[in-house]
Write a protein that binds this DNA or RNA. Structure first.
Length: 271
DNA sequence: TGATATGTTATCTT
DNA sequence: CAAGATAACATATC
């Protein structure tokens, strides 16, 4: 599923293709998950392509009227982009949610099979409000171990694994990387936050950053039908516990359910 | 055929 | 009242 490393990978590739381009036409095909106002986009220049949490954000500028708008793509489970250099390379029509044509003849489309994703158009104020509701970026310079300690102070009674996946707590972690980080840190996913020792918090902090950085290097994990613009990621080959039978030390893994989500862990390595 | 997969959010419980 | 837990959404795949 697209989590931080996957969305970061997609964002970087998208940036290479569309940064600086001018939108000449935009169309939406699914009212429920794509803002109808997107259809009115014309003659707006893409000035920035970036990621926050699991969202891809495209900054648009109307230079003539000094008008700023923001396209926010959330991939959900199965949202994906399709980029075509030339018009004759048709974008897939199935599950089409939105499509954009640029002044150089290239096109970008967004498709979503399960429709957990969305494409929204926001003003600056509205965008800020949404972004402020997310927790800190785990790979930002400011995300020191002290930041994690302070966050944990506020969630003493909560379950550690479920909390790692909470976007309001830390941005970008999902079911795959929360499990992996806990395994690397040697922490049992059933633990309550208040039970974590100082050194366990340090280990978890370090594990999170190492894991996410490596996963980005490998262009994300391709499980189910995730793929980025240039093919598949490699990190699925490096996953230690997610949907596996044994851990790297050949111990048998256990699967439990937490908040309706599967969690794999090793009773021997994770305490 | 029904169980399984999950990001996000609405709603329920403690 | 708030923190925490859970249900609901959608649908391809096994």
């Amino acid at each position: 599923m697209p989590e931080l490393p996957e969305v970061e990978t997609i964002t970087r590739q998208l940036r290479k293709q569309v940064l600086g381009k001018k939108i000449v036409q935009a169309k939406t095909f699914d009212k429920r998950i794509a803002d109808h106002s997107i259809n009115k986009l014309v003659s707006l220049k893409i000035v920035k392509v970036w990621r926050r949490a699991k969202a891809v954000i495209i900054n648009l500028e109307d230079t003539l009227y000094d008008h700023k708008l923001f396209l926010v793509f959330r991939l959900g489970m199965t949202g994906h982009f399709h980029y075509a250099d030339k018009l004759e390379k048709q974008a897939p029509q199935e599950y089409l949610v939105a499509s954009f044509s640029f002044s150089d003849g290239s096109t970008l489309s967004f498709n979503d099979i399960r429709r957990f994703g969305s494409v929204r158009l926001y003003t600056e104020g509205k965008l800020k409000k949404i972004l402020d509701s997310f927790g800190p970026e785990p790979l930002s310079k400011g995300f020191m171990v002290g930041v994690l300690r302070v966050l944990f102070q506020k969630r003493k009674k909560a379950n550690i694994k479920v909390t790692l996946m909470d976007q309001k707590f830390i941005a970008g972690m999902g079911n795959i990387y929360a499990q992996e980080a806990l395994y690397i840190a040697g922490v049992d996913p059933r633990r309550k936050i208040e039970s974590l020792s100082s050194s366990e918090i340090s280990k978890l902090h370090h594990s999170l950053q190492r894991l996410l950085k490596l996963a980005i290097e490998k262009k994300g994990s391709s499980v189910d039908n995730y793929s980025h613009l240039e093919g598949s990621g490699d990190f699925q080959n490096y996953l230690l516990v997610y949907q596996r039978d044994v851990c790297p030390k050949k111990h048998k893994l256990v699967k439990i359910y937490q908040g309706g989500r599967g969690t794999f862990y090793c009773p021997k390595c994770q305490k």
